[in-house]
Amino acid sequence: MDLSALKQLGMDDREINLYLALFQLGPSSIRDIASHTGINRGTTYESLKQMAARGLISYAPKGKRRVFRAEDPDKLLLLAEEKKSALEGTIDSLKTNIIPGLHHLKPDFSAGNVRFYEGDDGIETVLKDILATVGQQTDKEYCVFSTKSIRHHLYRPFPNYTLQRIRRKIKVRVIAVGDGGEDAEYSERKWLKTDGPVDASYIAIYPPKVAMISMASENYPVATVLEAPEVARSQQVVFDALWGFL
């Protein structure tokens, strides 16, 4: 029987071991429990006290000693429901109070508004940020400038990115610099012709952020994410104007 889920209720491996022992032994003394589990008596006693305080076990005097017993296992479900209720309250507080309050404390601009990422893991982080940021907006759409030479590198660390975007019904408009690119659901694409090769680059405009991805070397991508509403809006104006001409 796998009892690892009990860790979600705050029980550690020792407490799970003691809890299981009480079901196997029935009402037992500390000495018997310690002997059965191989845990020293002092540690056993302290753990049992903590478990009793959470209502998982109880004890009763028997002569000069205490006898411990496990409570009905349905108590576990009650504890889980209490944790779930507390977590829902925490989530609500984060959404309505704490997170808006922390955002309010942030200066309009600081070094923290610019983030740098490197390698495949970094690019995956940026792509996930695009989905998370746009997914919270009413109009779930973002815009992209993308060159042909970066496309086969971009989704290497996150191959199901497009599938996740589609599942979230997030729209994207792409101005493709150079040939190539595939059509997909919830996407529009226009092409900007060039006379020669263009360095690998990808610019995503998803207000209040702009992400810029390029290649530091042939197989090593780097990214800069700027969180600045004014910059994002100006880039959006440029994108929309060019989109209208194409």
Rank of each mutant, 00 (worst) to 15 (best):
Arg173His: 01
Tyr155Asn: 14
Tyr206Val: 09
Ile213Pro: 02
Ser187Pro: 05
Thr224Trp: 04
Glu185Asn: 00
Pro157Gln: 10
Gln236Pro: 07
Glu185His: 01
Ala200Asp: 00
Ala228Asp: 02
Val198Leu: 09
Val222Phe: 09
Ile213Tyr: 08
Val172Phe: 00
Pro208Tyr: 02
Arg168Asn: 10
Arg189Val: 12
Gly196Phe: 13
Pro157Val: 11
Ile166Trp: 02
Ser214Lys: 05
Ala228Val: 08
Ser234Tyr: 10
Lys148Ser: 14
Tyr220Lys: 14
Glu188Ser: 11
Leu226Val: 13
Leu192Gln: 10
Arg167Lys: 04
Leu192Ala: 10
Tyr186Thr: 00
Arg156Asn: 06
Ile213Leu: 09
Ile203Cys: 08
Lys190Cys: 09
Ser146Trp: 15
Glu182Gln: 06
Tyr202Leu: 11
Glu188Trp: 11
Asp179Lys: 14
Gln236Ala: 09
Ile150Trp: 06
Pro229Ile: 00
Pro207Lys: 01
Ala216Tyr: 09
Tyr155Phe: 15
Tyr155Ala: 15
Ala200Arg: 03
Glu230Met: 15
Lys193Pro: 03
Lys148Pro: 14
Ser214Leu: 04
Thr224His: 01
Pro157Asn: 12
Glu182Asp: 08
Pro221Tyr: 06
Lys148Phe: 13
Glu230Lys: 15
Gly181Cys: 03
Ala232Arg: 13
Arg156Thr: 13
Val225Trp: 03
Gly180Pro: 05
Tyr161Gly: 06
Tyr202Val: 12
Met212Cys: 13
Leu226His: 00
Ala216Trp: 06
Lys171Asn: 00
Arg165Leu: 01
Pro159Thr: 08
Ala176Gln: 12
Pro157Gly: 11
Val225Glu: 04
Pro207Arg: 01
Lys193Gly: 09
Ile203Ser: 07
Asp183Ile: 15
Gln164Cys: 11
Ala200His: 00
Glu227Lys: 10
Ile170Val: 07
Leu163Cys: 05
Asp195Asn: 15
Leu163Arg: 07
Pro197Met: 12
Ser217Glu: 05
Ile150Gln: 02
Asp195Ile: 15
Ala228His: 04
Ile166Leu: 00
His153Glu: 09
Tyr186Lys: 01
Gly196Ala: 15
Pro207His: 05
Ala204Val: 05
Tyr202Trp: 13
Ala216Ser: 07
Tyr161Ala: 09
Ile150Pro: 01
Glu185Arg: 02
Arg156Met: 11
Phe158Val: 10
Gln164Phe: 14
Thr162Gly: 00
Ala232Met: 14
Gly180Asp: 06
Ser217Cys: 07
Arg189Asp: 07
Glu182Ala: 12
Val237Ile: 06
Arg165Cys: 04
Ala232Cys: 15
Met215Leu: 14
Asn160Ile: 06
Val174His: 04
Tyr220Asn: 13
Ser214Asn: 04
Arg156Ala: 12
